[in-house]
């Protein structure tokens, strides 16, 4: 309960901070719409030449694009800014203020900065997703919805843990911002279903930089293409990632306070 209150209060601070700079809202709106236009343009070009792409219909890909924008919005709204702030705090020593608080430091670090205008992407992604589903005229039952939500949750957990693990390295190396840039650029590749990529890239996007689980897998869940094996794999990896990122975080904190030296 108190975790939710802490998350809410950070959202509130994010809203209040951003309201100070209203122009940002319009800039973000423009950016989001441009991003959408580019994504849709890409789809249009591809489907001028073919009817399906690796077994995906245009409507399926529309759903995928929606999820890609939606998940990217969540990452850019909370996870990425919070982790960048965390690395800055390590460098400047202000992390001390976080560690000295009587609350879980991992939670505080993970939600400490909210760039609320990215909510535009979160909403826009949902809209695109719904449009795709309507055009598919697919009857979505409770089953698909549940699978989709589970897949989304696992995807979010995997991406979050991945971010946390990368950021935790800053306890040792202080400057690791560039690692996050790698993730951002790899994320662009997630706009297409990972199945269409050559094996090595598919492997990379699934296991090394786990974008497949954040975008392709939920989209498969929604469009009824998801096999139970993949779903359970996602669940397993999500659990494993959450546990290992937490463990790694604790080791990092210990190192930071000089307990392990």
């Amino acid at each position: 309960m108190s975790y939710l209150r802490i998350i809410w209060i950070y959202f509130r601070l994010g809203i209040l901070s951003e309201l100070e700079y209203r122009a940002n809202f319009f800039v973000q709106l423009l950016e989001s719409l441009l991003g959408l236009a580019v994504a849709l343009g890409g789809l249009a070009v591809v489907f001028n030449h073919t009817d399906t792409l690796g077994g995906w219909l245009p409507e399926h890909l529309l759903v995928l694009v929606g999820i890609h924008i939606h998940v990217g919005g969540i990452i850019n709204m909370v996870i990425s800014p919070s982790m960048q702030r965390f690395m800055e705090d390590v460098r400047k020593g202000t992390l001390d203020f976080t560690i000295i608080k009587p609350a879980d430091s991992q939670l505080l670090v993970s939600v400490q900065r909210v760039e609320i205008w990215k909510l535009v992407d979160v909403v826009l992604g949902l809209v695109v997703m719904v449009v795709g589903m309507v055009r598919l005229r697919a009857a979505i039952g409770w089953g698909e919805t549940a699978v989709f939500l589970l897949a989304m949750f696992c995807g979010a957990a995997i991406v979050y843990s991945f971010y946390l693990i990368l950021s935790t390295f800053s306890f040792w190396f202080v400057k690791v911002e560039n690692i996050l840039v790698i993730f951002q650029s790899m994320y662009q590749a997630g706009r297409w279903p990972v199945g269409i990529y050559p094996d090595w890239l598919r492997f990379t996007l699934t296991f090394l930089v786990p974008i497949a689980f954040a975008v392709t897998v939920p989209a498969e869940g929604l469009t009824g293409q998801l096999t139970p094996q993949t779903l359970w794999l996602a669940v397993g990896i999500a659990a494993m990632m959450l546990i290992s990122s937490r463990t790694f975080w604790k080791i990092g904190i210990k190192y930071y306070s000089g307990a392990s030296a």
Partner: peptide, 22 residues
């Protein structure tokens, strides 16, 4: 070093403190 959020009034940052410290 400071911990108050730069862009907003201090009173809003205090709110965070209140929640964290119960």
């Amino acid at each position: 070093r400071n911990q108050l959020v730069w862009d907003i009034p201090a009173i809003d940052s205090y709110e965070l403190h209140r929640v964290i410290y119960h």
